[in-house]
Amino acid sequence: MKTAMGLAAMVLLVSASRPPVIQTERNVRQERCDLLLDQLDKASRSSVTYQDAKSVDRLRKRAIYLCNRNKESQGVRAFAKALAILGLRPVDTTKQQITRKP
């Protein structure tokens, strides 16, 4: 009984002393996809030609598909192409740089 209590107290102390969770590269990429989707949605409300709207919608659907399939880099590029068609630059609001371990 004492061993179980001691073990439970040790687990509690170890779990309480963990460092804060650092945002992973995956979360940063997914956040970037979400930001670009918001930017594209706001930009596509403006008046655009039918052909441009058709191309933008196709690229938007492809970007969402890619971002949901863990291919965020390709999704971000698709969002960037769609925004370029509308004459806009993608917003870059990454707050931290991810450093890769060798």
Rank of each mutant, 00 (worst) to 15 (best):
M1N: 10
M1S: 13
M1W: 05
T3S: 00
T3P: 01
T3A: 06
A4N: 08
M5P: 01
M5L: 15
G6C: 14
L7F: 14
L7N: 11
L7I: 15
A8W: 11
M10I: 07
M10K: 04
V11G: 13
L13C: 15
V14K: 05
S15Q: 15
S15I: 14
A16E: 15
S17I: 14
P19H: 10
P19K: 12
P20E: 06
V21A: 11
V21G: 09
V21S: 10
I22D: 05
I22M: 09
I22R: 07
Q23F: 12
Q23W: 10
T24V: 14
T24K: 10
E25S: 12
E25H: 09
R26M: 12
V28K: 08
V28D: 04
V28L: 08
R29N: 01
R29V: 05
R29K: 08
R29Q: 03
R29M: 04
Q30R: 14
Q30Y: 08
Q30T: 10
E31D: 11
E31Q: 11
R32P: 01
C33G: 07
C33E: 01
L35P: 02
L36M: 06
L37C: 06
L37Q: 10
D38K: 15
Q39P: 03
Q39S: 01
Q39M: 03
L40Q: 02
D41W: 10
K42Y: 11
K42W: 05
A43M: 00
R45G: 13
R45F: 11
S46L: 08
S46G: 05
S46D: 05
S47M: 13
S47G: 13
S47L: 14
V48H: 01
T49H: 06
D52L: 05
D52V: 08
A53C: 13
A53T: 12
K54S: 14
K54L: 11
S55K: 13
S55I: 07
V56G: 03
D57K: 04
D57S: 12
R58P: 02
R58D: 13
L59T: 00
L59R: 06
R60L: 08
R60F: 09
K61W: 09
R62G: 07
R62Y: 04
A63D: 04
A63H: 00
A63F: 02
A63P: 04
I64N: 01
Y65I: 08
Y65P: 05
L66E: 08
L66V: 11
C67S: 07
C67W: 04
N68M: 07
N68C: 06
N68E: 09
K71D: 05
E72C: 05
E72A: 03
S73V: 15
Q74C: 02
Q74I: 04
G75W: 04
V76Y: 07
V76G: 06
R77F: 09
A78D: 05
F79Y: 10
F79N: 00
F79W: 00
A80P: 02
A80F: 01
A80C: 08
K81G: 02
K81H: 08
K81M: 09
A82K: 01
A82G: 01
L83F: 07
G87E: 01
L88S: 07
R89C: 00
P90Y: 00
P90T: 03
D92I: 13
D92L: 14
T94V: 12
K95G: 03
Q97K: 11
I98E: 02
I98R: 03
R100W: 06
K101G: 03
K101W: 13
